[in-house]
Design a protein around this nucleic acid. Sequence first.
RNA 1: GGGCGCGUAGCUCAGUGGGAGAGCGCUGCCUUCACACGGCAGAGGUCAGAGGUUCGAUACCUCUCGCGCCCACCA
Length: 883
Amino acid sequence: MSELPKAYEPADVEPGLYADWEAAGLFHAEPDDPGEPFSVVIPPPNVTGSLHVGHALDNTIQDVIVRRERMRGRNAVWIPGTDHAGIATQTVVERQLAAEGLTRQQLGREAFLARVWAWREESGGTILRQLRTLGCSPDWEREAFTFDEARNRAVTKVFVDWHAAGLIYRGNRLINWDPALRTALSDIEVEHREVRGELVHFRYPLAPVAGSDPEEDARGITVATTRPETMLGDTAVAVHPEDERYRHLVGRAVRHPFLDRTFPIVGDDYVDRAFGTGAVKITPAHDPNDLALGERHGLEVLDVMTDDGAMAANAGPFAGMDRADARAAVKAALDEAGLLVAVEPHLHQVGHSSRSGVPVEPRLSDQWFVAVRPLAERAAAAVRDGRVTFVPERMTKPFLEWLDGLHDWCISRQLWWGHRIPAWYGPDGEVRVQAESPGVGWTQDEDVLDTWFSSQLWPFTVFGWPDDTPELRAWYPTAVLVTGYDINTFWVARMLMAGLWFTDDVPFRVVHNHGLVRDEHGKKMSKSFGNVIDPLDLIARYGADATRFALLRSAAPGTDVPLAEEWVEGAKRFVNKLWNAARFALVNLDGRRPGELPPDDRLALEDRWILDALHRAHAEVDAAYDAYDWPVVARGLYGFVWDELADWYLEAVKLRVHAEDAAVADDARAVLAHVLEAALRLAAPLLPFVTEAAWRALTGAAGGRDSLMAASWPTAAGRPDAAATEEFAAVRGLVREVNRFRSQLRIPPSRRFPLVVTAEAAVAAVLARHVGLVAALAGLSDLEVVDDLAEAPGTSTIPFPGGRAQVALAGVIDVAAELDRLGRERDRALAEAARVAERLDNPSFVDRAPADVVARERAKRDEALRVAEDLAARAAALGGAGA
RNA sequence: GGGCGCGUAGCUCAGUGGGAGAGCGCUGCCUUCACACGGCAGAGGUCAGAGGUUCGAUACCUCUCGCGCCCACCA
């Protein structure tokens, strides 16, 4: 009879619903649609990518936010798109070429780019398609790409404008060079890794001067270095000017042992006298500190390496060697020349390219830079005055500190795939920065821009900037940026800087940082470790809802997200539970649709209680949604649906929906329909598929625009009723106690039996009002409530808010087990009483603690003592009976 | 070197200045008319350690130990 299958099968439901939503245009928004504008832009994934579990988390969060805002009546839009990902994409296509035995140089720039575009056309949409299976609801009609025509126009404008403002300049500066990729990198593309290296001590002989001591000259000066190969580019030795050991040598020169040149010993207080030998070899071309020192002393700058990290022609006998080989060769040559003094192991941090993994080479190079100071200051101000806030808040401080220490940003890359730099070089060496070529004879800069240069403009270029569009006016600034904390520096900071500069507004009001998805033991997922979880696989086996739920359940803001496949399985069970709650409703509602609640005087205790529980769950879940506190959202929904709605309310309401009295049944159905429907709405953003399927069945909605997606967000779903909850707790307490007996006595749930409960007046009154309910829930054939608390063997005392009751059970119980239990409970009660009594004996407590706390403690002590007495008496009685 | 986070049940984690919790796992019983992707019952914790504040600390402060992350141009 049921229209719904017994078990929820996501694969049968999800694709159809998604297609229906999309066809109905439910993802699409126009700037002049009704409602307060609300927007989110996707952190554009690399076109090369496919959906990994981190994307799944990031996009689930965005989807949940956007879906809820739509339901709240906002004119919400979520902009999808991809990033051209300069280095990553170029590498992928180069690898394909390599498989064909080709290089990009062989192809030439134009042909190579054509090839990348072709590849992008073919497989660039993969990840966005995969987002659909996850249930994501961006406005697909607004898809953008960081390297399309519109974005290119914006990038060029930004470059030209910043150049005109003096914020972009070309300079010969020390940059991070990736010798494998043969391009410059920015500082944040360098990862510092600890490396076991060597500190090599060697001597530079002094160049003799008139009157110098030949012995001292030969002994020279000993320096220490982790990079012996750079000595080929040394142009000075530096000592601390007040170092007694070396002061007399300042002004002398040393002779290079392998190259025909000499260079000076200089005094500079940059030198740390305590480190190494107190004398430092200076290589201005390959070390930032050395360069700074070199500038102070007018030193020569000798770049001794080539683009691919080999020693250059000026490296004498070492020319042509790879820098790693040169390191060993120089060391050997020093040893042979008798100049090697000592080699000691040395642990230190070495910068590696985050793109290719090879050690970065600091090199002096002609590159384009963004002068970040003025931009960073504006960004920091926006954070400090609260125009932008971070969730969680603790991300703020490191962000500000990072902005504070920011160096100029090297934005030129020696690649082909990317936005071309709009700088033109004239025949006479003149440089012009402008969108179009100045004319014949001018050639454009060969380099492209750092990928992040275009990504930083994303929140406004997706809305058509630099044009003044309706989209930009309606949806900018965006509401919240959802991203992992790991790219706050790469991306978030730069969007903030660019956004403030060009739009005079923040690009987003909230930065919501989530963590990284890890395995269930907090380990990073990696292919080599074999602990990678594929979200598409999870979706295929457990469904999108379960995958979303499992992710968000652990996704506390800013905290890494542990995930195990079993947990997704658990989430699926929850989805199935919700489904079956809907099935139950469907078969019992007898065609009734959710609508008005019956008047208060026709509500049963369980109705009033579940409405109170709904009220509390609604408040909790709503607040958690607002706070981006996903675990609390998930727990709140889970607890309400499973523990309260399914385990108690549905059981309780069965009595009445099956009642002969049609009016009674109808009232029960009304509440059931209302509560279930409200729960579906509250869960809809997180579990869009199962809730939609259930909601359609429940409401008879036709689909299309008649969708839960387009339904309104509950505002006052439940109603507070603390008294009902307290009264229902008495019912629950008694039912649980009976269940305990049943379990202990191994009485099957199907077997019904009569029960007599003796209780103190207050409790008896409550229970007497609900004998039918208790009997139904506890599976009793008959329930008698006696207003006279009696002590009897084989009974169980149940404390209730207003007093106690005792359950007397017919039949034989396991005396030994019961005595054991009574003993333990009595010990517990006595320990509790003793602890509370101790507290009450303390005059300071009685004086200083609030009166209600003291009163509660007194009651607690008395109750514990009484319970202990009861337990003792019952144990005695039971012992007597059993003897 | 600087900054941040975390140590609570076997595992993953909530939590609060006055009653130690959840999910999974584990044990026992149950084919109860929404669900065996289920129901009921149960076992299991010196809340890392020390000191301080307080009438009272798992919670607030300090320190110690352990784990993790980010940032950083000391050769």
